[in-house]
Amino acid sequence: MSYVQIDQAFKQFGKSVVLQQVSLNVEKGELVTLLGPSGCGKSTLLRCIAGLESLDSGTISVNGKDISQLPPQRRNVGMVFQSYALFPNMTVFDNIAFGLKMQKLAREQITAKVNQAIELVHLSGKESSYPHQLSGGQQQRVALARALVTEPDILLLDEPLSALDAKIRKSLQSDLRSIQRDLKMTMIFVTHDQEEAMTISDRIFVMNNGEIAQQGKPEHIYASPKNEFVARFIGSYNVLTGRDLIRLTGQSMKPGTYAIRPEVMELHPSGEAHTFTHDRGLWLEGVISSMIVRGNVRRYEVQSQDVTLTIDELNVPHKVAFDEGMLINVRIPEAACTLLA
């Protein structure tokens, strides 16, 4: 039996159904991500686990114990919010100590545990600062320490890094991951950022319209999206129908919808000598309609008849970039066309 088990969770607000019989399992010490666009039900599911919302039907059990009917105080979960939710009237120390005081621990014990937590999140020296004196990143570290110090069974994180700038977000991602590994803490992380989900998760649950669209390891989800929603959401895949592909490439394809990753397609100058028949793969012609440099990759938009393709190319100095308006040939390796369900 899994450590966290959610069975047939159903929830609606008024007439709109937010969770449609969601079932999922999380193993002890695992970091899983609920990933999806806003309004997909991921935050609601997290709030149901925390006890801040109640399920209309279904059960949530942790470590074999059904917690679905318990108030938040008795669930022994920790939670980190996007807005930090630090108590403005308390210092860093008192914020972190709050949960321990509620557990009525002895003062020495509280001091020892709080100091340990402060060290864990690298905030030594900030004990007597107030939240408004800290940066966003520091505030979120305090919130993390406050949630961890009570040693919860699971830690729930509701888009904890979304309000932070890119650099701090990256460094907190890796800190969070290493803390999670050190403490072997079971964590459920909610985000709408697929890159973030890929970076930190053991497993990802992609959610859409209150359902789990696909679950699996990050590399698995990225490499083989099950349906069009996942393909589009997870990695700006090009989604084309078999008919489109036949029309553009002149080759026969099985009917259905195909997903093609932007980085597997190759661009070749239109005049370059090659024989379409001998070179394995699908070939099509197009015009570069735009090019953006995104750091290590160049992202091209290529117009081929009425279809726009997104193609990524590694941004290396010896390779000259194609200009807008240039005629080019595109090669798609046949194996890279994933047939979607």
Binding site: P72, Q73, M79, F81, S83, P88, N89, M102
Partner: peptide, 27 residues
């Protein structure tokens, strides 16, 4: 953002009364 503060306090084990008196009221 009293709602969020109450939720945070309750998850940390405070009753509604304690959360109100110790977290919301002073703020």
């Amino acid at each position: 953002d009293a709602r969020r503060l109450m939720e945070a306090a309750e998850i940390l084990g405070a009753s509604k009364m304690k959360a109100f008196l110790q977290v919301v009221a002073p703020n």
